[in-house]
Design a protein around this nucleic acid. Structure first.
Length: 222
DNA sequence: GTTCTAGAAC
DNA sequence: GTTCTAGAAC
């Protein structure tokens, strides 16, 4: 008889003072992480540590999640130095998928990262193409969650975990809603999401130098 | 996270 | 009149 407690579903293993409650709808990714066999027709890859899974409502032409399978790791708030290798492995899995996508289309550009205040439980990293060409991108919050400081690049998350031993819980959610709608390439302002979407499908201005270190592509100058 | 929809904004 | 945003959902 085999007993495996490491990936159990039991609740209540919260760290002291960390009693964030998650509504029922926020548990979807957790089920994928711990019962990937139930999602066999959709799951792209399963390892001991993570599941690669297509985002159900992709906000770009290519958008997948690398979902942690570690019990108790609900979000970046729960991450410590002991998770550094785990998060590095998640990052590497993301890069693996970037390579696959680039093999199909060399013109794509990707970013790997986390939402600073995630809506869904279980740590998950986004791998998202920077075209943001998707009918599921519908409102300002969608845009800002990927194109403002609300989006934390995986590379920076790893560096901060290395140096601080934790990810500082910055209150980005409120600030995000205040910030105006700006093109992620040319930084021009747009009055609403409809106008922004009309603009970004045409904008070919190269990305600003400060973003280059966080972009994954075949050729950034192209 | 999404859907629905009232009423604000244009 | 139509487009768009934002708050409720047990």
């Amino acid at each position: 008889m085999q007993v495996d407690n490491t990936k159990g579903r039991e609740e209540g293993r919260h760290q002291a003072g960390n009693f964030k409650k998650w509504p029922r709808w926020a548990e979807a990714l957790r089920d994928v992480a711990f019962s990937p066999e139930k999602y066999k027709d959709k799951v792209l890859k399963v390892t001991n540590e993570a599941v690669v899974y297509p985002d159900l409502y992709p906000k770009g032409k290519k958008h997948v999640l690398v979902i942690s399978r570690m019990n108790g790791l609900n979000s970046l708030e729960d991450a410590g130095k002991e998770h550094l290798q785990h998060l590095q492995n998640i990052h590497n899995l993301g890069q693996e998928w970037v390579a696959k996508f680039l093999n199909e289309d060399q013109s794509m550009i990707f970013r790997l990262g986390y939402h600073s205040v995630p809506s869904l439980r279980q740590l998950h990293m986004h791998v998202i193409s920077q075209d943001f060409d998707s009918p599921f991108l519908k409102n300002a919050k969608h845009w800002k969650s990927f194109a403002s400081s609300f989006f934390l690049d995986s590379k920076n998350v790893l560096a901060e975990l290395e140096s601080n031993g934790k990810i500082n819980p910055c209150s980005e959610e409120g600030r995000m809603l205040e910030s105006p709608l700006r093109c992620h390439r040319c930084k021009t302002l747009h009055k609403d999401i409809a106008h922004l979407k009309y603009h970004i499908c045409k904008c070919k201005i190269p990305f600003a130098p400060d973003l280059i270190p966080y972009l994954y592509a075949s050729n950034l100058s192209a």
